[in-house]
């Protein structure tokens, strides 16, 4: 089975983000980057499928030169080869624009399965996988925790996936390959990166494709105009009064402010 995993490089979770002078993006100069966590789960799922059923795992990522570091990490964790779609204006493209790049680069590979994380930790759009499926004319399922191949005939396979709905509800969904699945965090245990993996990754193939050569439109349908700091910062509210008063105030807050009741 040929599995492609689309991964994204995002600022490290603890990165201190500062708005740049244009007010439209963050300063990238001193940022440290990491693999988007849901994508790491997608990669893990792909590696486990390969370990069970054999085949090939290819990672694809789009972005500037620095993305190659994250690609290396994916190869170190066990992917067989990689495609780097070099694109320096990623932030200016909307979800559709990025999905077009990925779809154009993925099409010639004709994978049996395309996995990607449910959403990214930076923009949090949560759309790329679904749009790529639409562009490639493939069926898709989202919020997937586990993937199982239930029947296989030649290169065609029937896939059974476990979806996470809301509030502790789940659902099984079946679809034929080739298909796109967007993977929810937490379905598997991630493997940690190892020294041996990094050393072995040095010899694996990374094919570079330039965004401009893919012949897709860069004009966005949605434009990010400005970024700002949100107003409220987290702080502890101490509720005073008698036990009854404090309890009543707390229930009110939980219901209407935190909305968790």
């Amino acid at each position: 089975m040929k599995i492609i995993v689309a991964i994204k490089q995002v600022p490290e979770r603890d990165a201190q983000v500062h708005i740049d002078s244009s007010g439209q993006w963050i300063e990238e100069a001193n940022l440290q980057y990491a693999m988007n966590e849901p994508d790491a789960y997608a990669l893990e799922e792909a590696l486990q499928l390969k370990e069970k059923a054999g085949g090939e795992v290819i990672v694809i990522s789009t972005g500037p030169e620095r993305v190659s570091q994250t690609i290396r990490e994916a190869l170190a964790k066990g992917a067989d080869r990689a495609i780097h779609v070099v694109c320096d204006d990623l932030a200016a493209r909307d979800a559709l624009g990025v999905a077009r790049l990925l779809a154009a680069a993925i099409q010639p590979e004709s994978p049996d399965l395309l996995l990607t994380g449910l959403q990214s930790e930076d923009l949090g759009l949560g759309q790329t996988g679904v749009i790529v499926a639409e562009l490639l004319g493939l069926p898709h399922a989202s919020l997937i925790l586990q993937v199982e191949i239930i029947a296989k005939e030649g290169s065609k396979a029937q896939i059974k996936a476990r979806r996470e709905l809301e509030e502790g509800w789940f659902q099984s969904i079946e679809l034929p390959s080739p298909a796109v699945l967007t993977i929810q965090s937490g379905g598997n245990k991630l493997r940690y990166a190892t020294l041996m993996g990094i050393k072995r990754a040095k010899t694996k193939e990374v094919r570079t494709v330039h965004a401009a050569d893919l012949g897709v439109s860069a004009a966005p349908a949605v434009a990010l105009e400005a970024i700002t700091l949100p107003k409220k910062q987290k702080s502890t509210q101490i509720l005073n009064g008698s036990a009854e008063e404090a309890a009543a105030a707390l229930v009110e807050k939980l219901k209407f402010e935190a909305r968790v009741l």
């Binding site: 979770r13 990491a34 966590e37 991630l190 990166a193």
Partner: peptide
């Protein structure tokens, strides 16, 4: 152990 390693792969502490 994996949790510790992943926390430090992605975060600072």
């Amino acid at each position: 152990g994996a949790k510790l390693f992943l926390a430090l792969e992605r975060g600072s502490n």
